[in-house]
């Protein structure tokens, strides 16, 4: 359970997050939606303490992550797996080493065991054969899938996806969506998907939180989203459906 309460955040003179509050219950998949530059990614970084709020609190499992020491914060972060926008694979390591990295760093596993886990993770994203390849030799979609394998290697309780489908063709986007859904079902994790791709929201999310101009404009289930007559939300959803219609 993650709860964000009345978080404010400014960069220099720019007020990015204004009194943002949202609760993310255990086991659910929540989509944080909004236009580019609305503050979605900033909110996401608050969830794992990469940014700290000017005011307000972020609690993970009841712990205020901004009131604890760096060492404790890092322990909290080990509950998270994060899939960054560009994958953020370490480009000095090949795919296998990237996935093995958290295992080697944080577990006492022996090398055969690690190999076993890495193979399983890569198989889950249907990339068994790319272990020896460097990130630069992979396509953008493949990089994201390897990054996903790395994010889940330590079996986190929370997985955060930052724009998982942006910059990918619709088919690859669908594959990623499917992976996210499968992970949520198989591993029973809490997923937070930061996206502006409504297609993917409708595919995978249980609930949605709509950020508009730095404020939490609307929250509710997907059913409620369909029924909502909020003009701003409707405009955002419609614009996306129009795009989906085109593609």
């Amino acid at each position: 359970m993650i709860s964000v309460t009345k978080v404010n955040k400014s960069f220099n003179d720019k007020h990015v997050l204004k009194d943002v509050s949202v609760d993310i219950p255990e086991g659910e998949t929540i989509a944080i939606i909004g236009r580019s530059g609305s503050g979605k990614s900033v909110l996401m970084k608050h969830l794992i303490g990469l940014l700290s709020p000017d005011s307000g609190t972020v609690t993970v499992d009841g712990i205020d992550i901004n009131a604890i020491t760096y060492a404790e914060l890092r322990r909290v972060r080990r509950n998270f797996g994060v899939l960054f926008q560009g994958g953020a694979l370490f480009d000095s390591m090949n795919s296998f080493e990237n996935v093995a990295f958290p295992l080697r760093t944080f577990t006492e596993m022996g090398e055969p065991e690690i190999e076993d886990v890495v193979k399983r993770c890569l198989a889950m994203v249907e990339l068994e054969d790319v272990g020896a390849k460097l990130p630069s030799e992979l396509s953008g979609g493949m990089q994201k899938r390897v990054a996903l394998a790395r994010a889940v290697a330590l079996q986190p309780r929370y997985i955060i996806y930052d724009e998982p489908t942006s910059g990918l063709d619709p088919e690859t986007s669908n594959t990623i969506d499917e992976l996210i859904r499968n992970l949520a079902d198989q591993l029973n994790v809490t997923s937070i998907v930061v996206t502006h791709d409504m297609h993917s929201v409708l595919n995978i999310a249980d609930r949605a939180a709509f950020i508009y101009e730095g404020r939490m404009h609307w929250t509710g289930t997907i059913d409620e989203l369909h029924r909502s007559d909020d003009q701003v939300l409707k405009a955002f959803v419609t614009a996306n459906e129009y795009k989906i219609g085109l593609s």
Partner: peptide
């Protein structure tokens, strides 16, 4: 490329 954020998010210093 957010690799530093990735390290941090894993719980690494």
């Amino acid at each position: 490329t957010e690799q530093i954020d990735a390290l941090e998010s894993m719980g690494l210093n």
